[in-house]
Design a protein around this nucleic acid. Structure first.
Lengths: 110, 110
DNA sequence: GTATTTGTTTTAAAATTTAAAATAAATACT
DNA sequence: AGTATTTATTTTAAATTTTAAAACAAATAC
């Protein structure tokens, strides 16, 4: 299985974290907070659709609500395959970050 | 500063890890081992050049050695800016991976 | 009806990734 | 000397991903 790109990993984790509130706009604002910079809507919706097509996410469309602008939302949730892909990327990351020699450049991971 | 892509992060970490032996081919084989899949040469050399252009890596070209095929190598090392970019990506990752609710899907990060 | 708000889709340009081929420079062999 | 082999970097072109902006859709508010 191909390793997840950075944005794919962060999107899957955000869906995980937001649980029952994971849809396009909440995902976008959560991730914007995490990265401390605004993301365009396309930067979220486009890869979300790809993650769904590849089976890392599933989705269900809600009924509209009676709030102002309360359109139907597309809620996402992690699939088993999505969990597995996160597991894999975490393993690679942990391996890459372990046993780094001291370079005397003033910082080593804790 | 833009967040590093996956391959950029892994390349910087590999240069860090390989210390005085960090050049194209050693970086490629170390990373292939980490990912458990072969990488094309372009998949390494192209982003290495970009990382240098952006100031995350510096390089020095060696003298040829007297081994068979022992051409001059381009050795890379992390710059202060490279260390800083790794620091930043690690902060984002740690934040993204923390406080994940239990989904009952059989796994949570340790 | 018209405006405003929330939300998703489309699109087109820019950038990155990937894989393959080309190039370069060294030693080995006959 | 000439040809083969090995190590190493560069180039290139296609595919894919990323980004930013505009378009579209559907709800309530005025």
């Amino acid at each position: 299985m191909e390793i997840l790109s950075r944005i794919e990993e962060l999107l899957l984790l955000t869906v995980w974290k937001l649980q029952d509130e994971a849809y396009g706009l909440t995902i976008r604002s959560h991730l914007s907070g995490l990265l401390e910079q605004d993301l365009s809507v396309g930067a979220v919706y486009v890869p979300l659709k790809r993650l769904k097509k590849r089976g890392y996410l599933s989705s269900t469309d809600s009924e509209p609500t009676d709030e102002r602008g309360g359109r139907s939302k597309r809620f996402f949730r992690l699939t088993q395959k999505g969990v597995h892909a996160l597991q894999q990327v975490r393993t690679v990351q942990e391996s890459a970050w372990s046993n780094l020699p001291d370079l005397g450049l003033g910082w080593n991971p804790s």
